[in-house]
Amino acid sequence: MALFDYLKSTLLSKVVMAVTGVILVLFLIGHCVGNMQVYIGQEVFNRYAHFLQGLGELLWIIRIVLFVCLVLHIITSIRLKWLNFQAKGQKYEVKNYVKAKLTGRTMIWTGVLVVAFLVYHLLHFTIGVIDADNFSKRNMEYYKGEVVIAEDKVLNGESNEIGKLERQAETIKVEGKELSKENDVVLFFRPDAYSMVVKSFRQPLYAISYIILVIFVGFHLSHAIQSAFQTLGLNHPKYNCFFRAVGPWLSTILVICYISIPITIWFGLVGGGV
């Protein structure tokens, strides 16, 4: 297939690894910033989660882009790993690495752990198969919201469409609920993602497995980010201290932020009210 012709070139394959990898890293940064809202509180966190769910087509576009990146990244990594294994040929009896670090030499294995984590994480918090009792769709909460009526759509304050508009003479109804005026404050339902996360991470098994797998994602990124710069041709003595350092630093910061959530919840510092 012409689409996969790039696999015949080592350099183009590397560029595909780098571009898809960087897009995935940008997602991880965005996701991390979003998650940090758990420290602001239940209200903000749930509003954010609900906002993401309400993105509709945009959410699916993001999901598809990320999925395509991941698939290309994995296919290319397997092809390159096989090529490199072939190219190396016979191993040395004694091998002494001067500069190559373990994180760099284990990319394919930390990559496999990233996939394992991804599947586990989606089953846990997105699809709700793992720890199903706690899954947010079953944990609903009331929240106060202002109704905004735009033409025939009824939106809540987060611009999510929340129901069908029915106009009967003087009264306005949304899904059978009567509103007194067009900008009313009413109670709505939304998934209580905050409580779900808190209840899950209070169970040591979920907290520990999450922490360990996130650390492996960190190992992957610690080599990957500087590698992507170099692959994309970004190397200059003036800026190399940045290009080389940003990987370990960024991945350390990301790992600390991500794992701080299960740790603070586990130790009861966050989510005490749930």
């Binding site: 080592t10 590397k14 390159l80 190219a87 001067v98 030499r105 990319m107």
Partner: peptide, 17 residues
């Protein structure tokens, strides 16, 4: 680069060894 690929050399993963 094409000849390098034909000779069966591997793809750099930026270890800088």
């Amino acid at each position: 680069v094409n000849q390098m690929d034909k000779e069966g050399f591997g793809a750099c993963t930026n270890h800088y060894e």
